[in-house]
């Protein structure tokens, strides 16, 4: 554990809790992509099956359980409790275009051919692109609520901080995992446009709206 990874994890946790808070407080999931949330739930489920097979630390297990619980909780709020507020007309990105390539790639570029490892690899690839339906939705509606913008910023920062963590781990532990690094870089690049808008608009107190 190093400071970059800890900050990354906390940023990830903050993002997930912010989203739950927003939905609960406003009693609405308007502006949130159910498809992105579904993809994240698939990601956590595929990756954290190792809760049953390997133990890393209490911190690790607790975080995994929190991420899993929160993502299923988010789906419950979006598709059941506050379903009438879900803006599915604007959530029209085809997620099979993301799931199928991620699955195919996880059979081609993988450390070793075991079910657990392929699932883990699939989750890494899928996570890299899982935000696309949400970004697509923001571009379609042309705006995002401020709290949704904070959520996206925290979520995007998490993988960016992980990149610093990987650089640090490479020099201190000789740790190098090209699958996570390449996917992490793709994931962070997808947020760049959003980061720019967040810094130039939201941080100056304006609402995020596209020109």
């Amino acid at each position: 554990m190093n400071i970059f990874r800890l900050c990354g994890d906390l940023s990830h946790l903050l993002a997930i809790l912010l989203l739950l808070f927003k939905i609960w407080k406003t009693r609405s999931c308007a502006g949130i992509s159910g498809k992105t949330q579904l993809l994240f739930t698939i990601v956590y489920t595929a990756r954290y099956l190792d809760l049953f097979t390997s133990f890393v630390s209490v911190y690790n297990s607790v975080m995994k359980i929190v991420f899993l619980t929160a993502s299923y909780g988010t789906l419950y709020l979006m598709f059941y409790k506050f379903k009438p507020t879900y803006d599915h007309n604007h959530d029209s990105f085809r997620i099979l275009y993301l799931i199928v390539p991620a699955l195919v790639l996880s059979f081609i570029i993988v450390h070793v051919y075991t079910v657990m490892e392929i699932l883990w690899t699939f989750s890494i690839y899928l996570e890299a692109v899982a935000i696309m339906p949400q970004l697509f939705m923001v571009s379609r509606t042309g705006e995002a609520e401020t709290i949704t913008s904070h959520y996206l910023f925290a979520l995007g920062s998490y993988r960016a901080l992980y990149i610093l963590n990987w650089i640090y781990r490479y020099y201190t532990e000789d740790f190098l995992d090209w699958i996570t690094i390449m996917a992490g870089i793709v994931q962070t690049i997808l947020y760049c446009d959003f980061f720019y808008l967040y810094i130039t608009k939201v941080l100056k107190g304006k609402r995020l709206s596209l020109p």
Partner: peptide
């Protein structure tokens, strides 16, 4: 060689 990699990140 046996694959013994444990993914220690989240």
């Amino acid at each position: 060689e046996e694959f013994d990699k444990v993914h220690d990140e989240l």
